[in-house]
Every structure is written in structure tokens, then in C-alpha cells.
Design a protein around this nucleic acid. Sequence first.
DNA 1: AAATATGTTAAAAATTTATTTAACGTTTTG
DNA 2: CAAAACGTTAAATAAATTTTTAACATATTT
Lengths: 183, 183
Amino acid sequence: MSESTEGSNNKIEEAKNKVISAIAETMDLYGVTPAAANLYATMYFKDQMTLDEMRTELEMSKPSMSTSVRKLQEIEMVKKTFTRGSRKHTYIAEKNFFRSFMVFYCQMWEREAKMNMEAIKEAQEDLIAVIKDPTSSPETVATAKKYYDQLEESKTYYNWLEDLVASIRSEKIFEFLPKHKQD
Amino acid sequence: MSESTEGSNNKIEEAKNKVISAIAETMDLYGVTPAAANLYATMYFKDQMTLDEMRTELEMSKPSMSTSVRKLQEIEMVKKTFTRGSRKHTYIAEKNFFRSFMVFYCQMWEREAKMNMEAIKEAQEDLIAVIKDPTSSPETVATAKKYYDQLEESKTYYNWLEDLVASIRSEKIFEFLPKHKQD
DNA sequence: AAATATGTTAAAAATTTATTTAACGTTTTG
DNA sequence: CAAAACGTTAAATAAATTTTTAACATATTT
């Protein structure tokens, strides 16, 4: 290879590294480990990778790569692919950020809505019992009512969150907010 | 206080605790410390609190409360209020989850879009230089073009994220996805 | 002005999380 | 069937984060 083409190749690596760093840094905030974040960002520029390639490329241990790739599969940012002829498992990165967004946030929000709604329902049942209890003092009943109403009010938010999830899953959101190029 | 009203009050505490636990647990995933998560969830059922009340209620150190409350102020889930007559600072929790959602995600997504767009722009400049460089081999040029196109494609996503942020900030999103009760 | 109240910063300790090394279980190859 | 390849699990180490204790700065009261 000529020396100047080697320079061009280095420049390509440099360009990739800038994007890899940025992706990995923002992924940190998504609750994945640095290893997983770096791994995904690296795979974003690869067609497919095996565990051994991962650990060579990132200079990390194999179990670390194994764990990271599993976590990435959970949030569907990486898929396992069958490669005939190879004993090694091969993995590819999901390169469509829209799909990653969908899976990640829908999972997260659904969990949040479900958990909190469950707790709210139980709490409201308790509060109703207090309100109906004839031995509760008027102040106690008033307090129970206040909290009941506050919780009732908050349901609006969780309903909305669930609607948001549904509109993303069904892709209806893209009718309201279309995908487009430019900038 | 009669014994049965005391029981009712305990029941109210129990009801609150269920919701506090659920909120705190989901907040963990939002990148705040357990102390901050518990603090917010506790404040959600209070009118206002001082640092000393916080540490009494959560049985934690004052610096921990001080740090937590500052973090919560950053993401605008807590505001400082002026209470005349009191030397102590008083804080109130933002109880409108819609507003918390807006501030938190808009901050997060804007940061992500900005950071990654910046990196993409720089990377694309590098890649164009490689493509234009007459000493680059045809394969190198092809590779550079491939990455350039991949990055160009991904811009669509970041543009969309920014549109999403704008539609949340302007509240236009609620025309598409209205807030409503029921369930 | 001294003593107290309030909140923050800095250093230390404790806890949690991430990563690695080592061991293990399968499967495959020679 | 023994040896090697591959991946995972478990225990140990390393690193990072969270929380606390202690010291400090500022303002307020007496």
C-alpha cells in the first residue's frame, strides 16, 4: 500500500473514532456499561463481529464482551446472525437508530407506567378503606382524600405515557413528526 | 388520638410508601442517585421541606440531602421557595410529571443530538477530504463513501429527535397525543 | 463580638458496579 | 477419544460512585 493511501486510511479511522466516541459517551446515559457502549459504537461501523474480534478490537476480556453483547441484545441493539461455515457466533449492530429508540424507550416507559400504576392502584385502595372507615377522624379522612386525588391526577400522565408508547410502536407518531433529511 | 384513627394514619403512611418506593425505583433508571430518588418521591407527598426535615425523614446526612436537592433542582424536579420568617431554605417538588418529563428528556435528547451531530459533521469533513484526495486508492475512496453515506443517513434520526424536542417544548405534541383521564 | 444556625465543600469510608482471571461445560475437530 | 475451540458462569479484583464525617464559610442572633 502506498504511503498516502495509508494516510487516507488513518484519516478514515480517525473519522470513525470521532463518531464512536460520541455515540459511546451518549450511550453511557442510557444505563449501559462503558464496555457495552463502546462495543455498540464500534459495531455500528462493522458488518458483523465475533466475540474474539470484539475483544481484539476493544482490547478487553472475552467475558466482558460476552456480557456486553448480551445486554445489547436485550435492548435489541445487537442481533445474533447465523454465519455458515463459522463455529463462532456472529453479531450485527442495529444501525437504524429509530428502531433502537423505539425498543429502548418503549421498554423503559412501559415498565415505569406499569410499576407506578400498580402501586397507585394499591395505594388508592388503602386510601379508600381509610376514607370509608367510620373510626377515622375527619382530619385523617381529609388527608386520605387529598392523597387520593393527587394520585388520581397523576394517572393522566401514565396514561399519556402509555399512549406515547403505543403511537411509537404503531409508528403513528411519524405521521405527526415525519422523518426527513436536511441540515 | 384514638387507637383506630392511629391505625388509619398508619394505613395512609403505608399507601404513600408504596408509591414512594415505586417512584424511587423507576427514578433510579433516570440516572439519579438512590438518595435523590427517595428524596424526590418523599417530597412528592409534601408541601415543602427544609434540609433538616429531609434528613430527619430519610435518616440520611445533611450533605447527602444538600447534594441530592441540588441535583433535583438541575433537572427541575425541585424548586427553592422563599418562606418568610424561616432562615432555612425550603424546597418544593414539581408534582406535574408532564413538566418533569419535558425537562428531563428534552435536556437529554438535545445533548445527544448536539453531541453526535457535531461528531458526524467533523467526521464527514474528514471523509470528504479522503474522497477528494487524489492519492487515495479506489478502495479507500469507496470505504470513505460508504461511511459518509451511513453518517448522512443517521442525521435523519437526530433531526427527528430535535423535532420531537421542539414539539414537546411547544406542547404541540399534546395536540397529537392529548392528555386524558380514565383507566 | 461571641456563639449559634445553616448550608456547602473536601476528604474519607462504604458501597456498588464493572471488569478480569480462572474454572467449567459443551461442542467440535483431529 | 483426547485435545482444542468456544462461550458462559463464578469468584476475585479493580474502579467508580455514593454517602458520611469532619472541616469550613457565611450569615444571624444574642
